[in-house]
């Protein structure tokens, strides 16, 4: 891990409480870590350990109850709603478990979407970027396919292309392979490893205990605490794992 790389994310004692009726749920109880450019970090933990809550804060969808969060050098905690929306548009790429593509809409149009909310891009530039992103995820031949004409794996690739299209500082994925079979999950992992190799910063929340082997670093959460934060010295190749999978896997 090149520790001289630029700091993308710095969390300082992040806490997040939810008030439910009379009770206070402590979803995050003091999280601190730093993620540098080019890291592929997995976050694992049991259900209810606070993974999604943490990811929402990292993605500027939510703000912590206390603690400081710097994204690409900018303090997010004091930002208003609109400023956070702009920040998400420029610095974050989201990948969701259920893809969240627009229905009846072509792959290119889906990928263009983030740039529609950025007036710096012209229609032609938008199209150009979207096509490039789709080529990068291996869907160069599916540009005009509508979302309902694609398989789950293809839809998740479109979603990843959409997360790439604005050249974000970090790609955040919550259970991005949760809805996919093993083979397709590995295909997506191959793609993420390729993006990692190209220098992209990726944070991947997962239940699957195998996946950390393919990432460069793993953070484990439990009850809103970080219980372990390890660097992976021997990153496995998802491509060779995919090649070794039996053909009729499931």
């Amino acid at each position: 891990m090149a520790s001289d790389m630029k700091e993308i994310i710095r969390l300082e004692d992040i806490r997040r409480n939810f008030i439910v009726g009379e009770e206070t749920v402590h979803a995050l109880r003091g999280i601190s870590f730093t993620i540098r450019e080019g890291e592929f970090v997995t976050i694992v933990g049991t259900s209810g350990s606070g993974k999604s809550t943490l990811l929402n804060i990292l993605g500027c969808l939510d703000t912590p109850t206390s603690g400081e969060y710097f994204l690409d050098g900018v303090s997010v905690r004091t930002m208003g709603k609109n400023a956070r929306a702009t920040l998400r548009n420029r610095k974050i790429g989201f990948v969701f478990q259920n893809y969240n593509l627009l229905p009846k809409t072509t792959a290119v149009e889906n990928v263009e979407l983030p740039l529609m909310y950025n007036s710096a891009y012209s229609a032609a530039q938008r199209r150009e970027k979207a096509v490039q992103a789709l080529i990068a995820v291996g869907l160069g031949d599916r540009l005009q396919h509508k979302s309902n004409q694609m398989s789950g794996g293809q839809m998740q690739r479109v979603a990843i292309a959409r997360a790439l299209v604005n050249d974000p500082a970090v790609i955040l994925a919550d259970e991005a392979t949760g809805n996919l079979d093993t083979r397709t999950s590995f295909e997506i992992l191959v793609l993420l490893q390729k993006l990692h190799a190209e220098g992209k910063t990726i944070i991947f929340v997962t239940h699957n205990p195998e996946i950390p082997q393919y990432a460069s670093r793993n953070i484990t959460l439990r009850d809103g605490h970080v219980t372990s934060d390890t660097t992976n010295a021997h990153i496995l190749s998802a491509a060779s794992a995919l090649a070794n999978l039996p053909i009729n896997d499931d």
Partner: peptide, 13 residues
């Protein structure tokens, strides 16, 4: 869900 998605990729209210 579409609205949620648009917001998460940067649409303001």
């Amino acid at each position: 869900r579409e609205i949620g998605l648009r917001m998460s990729i940067g649409a303001k209210g």
